[in-house]
């Protein structure tokens, strides 16, 4: 039996043997926690508009985002957000709080290598690809919009 064939067979055997993630319960956890984060965001926004009746929807959205990004960052620093993440999975990764966590966590982790080469340089190791993709896609969409 040649090596390629052996490896293919072995990979198939391993794939059949590995335990699978239990989809159903993880879906529920992600839905509940993700939904909860969104409800909290909406709540903060409604509250802002209630307190400041003259505030526009756009600026209320901006302030709400600032608040929840700050809170997620703070919870990351306190070592709480990763525990939520273990339980909630995509529920706490997909909302903007997950993005905040993905920038704060390497910043906290690599602070020990110094401010410039540690914290600043490593801050975007996790979120970097998301930012690059976001910018690239927005350029493409901007060009399409220009010629339409």
């Amino acid at each position: 039996m040649d090596i390629e064939e052996r490896n293919k067979k072995y990979n198939e055997y391993v794939q059949a043997k590995i335990p699978k993630t239990k989809n159903f319960p993880t879906l529920i956890y992600a839905f509940v926690v993700g939904g909860l984060i969104c409800c909290i965001g909406q709540g903060i926004m409604d509250l802002l508009m209630l307190i400041f009746p003259t505030m526009s929807v756009e600026s209320a959205t901006a302030w709400m985002l600032i608040v929840i990004i700050f809170v997620a960052s703070l919870l990351t620093g306190l070592g709480i957000y990763d525990r939520i993440g273990v339980f909630a999975g995509a529920g706490s990764i997909v909302p903007i709080t997950g993005f905040s966590n993905s920038i704060t966590s390497p910043a906290v982790e690599f602070k020990r290598e110094g401010i410039i080469f540690g914290l600043c340089a490593k801050m975007f190791t996790v979120a970097g690809p998301v930012i690059v993709n976001g910018v690239a896609v927005s350029i493409v969409i901007g060009l399409i919009y220009l010629f339409l």
Partner: peptide, 17 residues
């Protein structure tokens, strides 16, 4: 963890394997 995987405080899930 910090050499091979992700920062400790990142809220990701570990796969079952």
């Amino acid at each position: 963890e910090r050499q091979y995987r992700f920062p400790l405080e990142l809220g990701n899930q570990r796969p079952p394997t």
